[in-house]
Computed example of a mutant assay.
Amino acid sequence: MATTASPHATPNDLSSVTKTLDLLAPRWSVWVLMTVSAQPLRYAEIKSRLPWLADGQLHPRLTHLTNAGVVERTEYAPRHVTYGLTIRGAELMPVLTVIASWGDTYLEKALVANKTTGGMEPERIPPAQNIDDTLALIVPRHATPILWSLQARGRASAKTLATEAMPGYGLTGVYKPLDRLVADGLVTATGTGDFQLSASGQALAPVFQAISAWATAPAPGARRPRGQGPAPSQNRSGPWATTPTRVPAPAVPAGPSAAPALATTPPDAPAWKPSDLFSHQIPARPLSPAGGPRR
């Protein structure tokens, strides 16, 4: 029997989360953010780190992220322009760490032979790909409102979800996004007509908490404070200091590394090697779900 208690989250929280997901969802946006996370870079430097992106793909991503207030365009001279993270962009890096941790834990990985031992082991997926594949599961229309509602209720009928997560669509409209979430392994049917989150769906709670905390935090000015070093992603403040990840977040490599990194963690946390982001061929589409969703 479905519960009837109202969800604890407010509509403003959910709206802020979906807007943040819309910010991150366009393909390669996360890769661009991570590329400029260590230090501001010129356009040609970004392009050399994302060689598979044509100008027609990279320039719109930079414009999109700049307009969203997470990337700052600084013009020193007509032909000397750099792109780097704003304060808001730097504060978004720990959120990406949480999303990457969920993807690394719950998304499928193909077994590949270890080049040294010959033994089979899970494929090592670049963090940015884990983020993109996770977003592909929760960004589709109505997916997050349904997951949000089930997280608050525990379980609910399709009728309750249609009313709460998809007002105005009617009962029949809820089944397509529900079926997708079930196929992706985030939601399960109870057998009594109700639906509830799977274990991997429940584990999305830290992801939504981190996104919500970032989205509802007061937005500072887009300009960096004086004296800030070249790696704004190393500064952790605000709600992120109290938003734990499932897996210790990787540390930022020392020095002006050519490869991007996510946010700083305690000194004993494992570091991501410079090749982590680009160590795999970029698939045209994420792997199909088998044992764990990866679109």
Results as ranks from 00 to 15, higher is better:
Gly185His: 06
Gln151His: 13
Asp55Phe: 04
Thr4His: 09
Ala251Trp: 01
Ala77Phe: 09
Thr20Trp: 09
Ser37Asp: 11
Thr172His: 12
Asp132Pro: 01
Pro94Met: 06
Gly118Ala: 12
Asp13Asn: 14
Arg124Lys: 14
Thr86Lys: 07
Val36Thr: 07
Ala54Asp: 09
Thr265Lys: 00
Pro11Phe: 08
Thr160Arg: 12
Arg27Gln: 09
Lys19Trp: 04
Ser275Val: 02
Leu147Met: 11
Gly291Gln: 12
Arg285Cys: 02
Glu72His: 05
Gln129Asn: 10
Trp28Leu: 03
Ile211Trp: 10
Gln228Asp: 00
Tyr76Phe: 15
Val187Ser: 06
Ser37Leu: 11
Met120Phe: 14
Ser212Phe: 04
Leu33Arg: 08
Ser257Gly: 11
Gln57Thr: 11
Leu50Ile: 11
Leu33Gln: 07
Ser37Lys: 10
Ala68Lys: 02
Ser37Cys: 12
Arg73Phe: 03
Gln202Tyr: 02
Ala231Val: 00
Thr63Asp: 07
Ala263Tyr: 01
Thr134Gln: 04
Thr116Lys: 15
Lys19Asp: 13
Asn12Trp: 12
Ala205Pro: 07
Trp102Asp: 05
Leu277Trp: 03
Gly201Phe: 06
Leu85Tyr: 04
Arg73Asp: 02
Thr144Ala: 12
Pro220Asn: 03
Leu287Lys: 13
Thr144Leu: 06
Val30Lys: 10
Ala215Ile: 11
Met120Thr: 14
Leu21Met: 12
Lys273Phe: 01
Glu75Asn: 11
Pro7Thr: 13
Thr160Ala: 13
Ala261Gly: 14
Lys109Cys: 12
Arg246Cys: 06
Tyr106Glu: 11
Asp184Ala: 03
Tyr83Phe: 15
Lys19Ile: 05
Ala162His: 04
Tyr106Gly: 08
Pro218Lys: 11
Gly191Trp: 04
Thr18Gln: 14
Arg224Lys: 06
Lys273Glu: 04
Tyr106Ala: 12
Asn235Met: 00
Asp179Ser: 14
Trp272Arg: 03
Gly185Gln: 03
Thr63Ala: 06
Ile211Cys: 09
Ala9Arg: 15
Gly227Ile: 01
Gly238Val: 05
Leu65Met: 05
Pro218Ser: 06
Met34Trp: 04
Tyr106Met: 11
Gln39Trp: 13
Pro248Cys: 07
Ala183Val: 06
Ser212Tyr: 05
Leu178Glu: 02
Arg294Trp: 01
Val174Arg: 06
Pro289Ile: 07
Leu186Trp: 11
Val36Gly: 03
Pro270Asn: 02
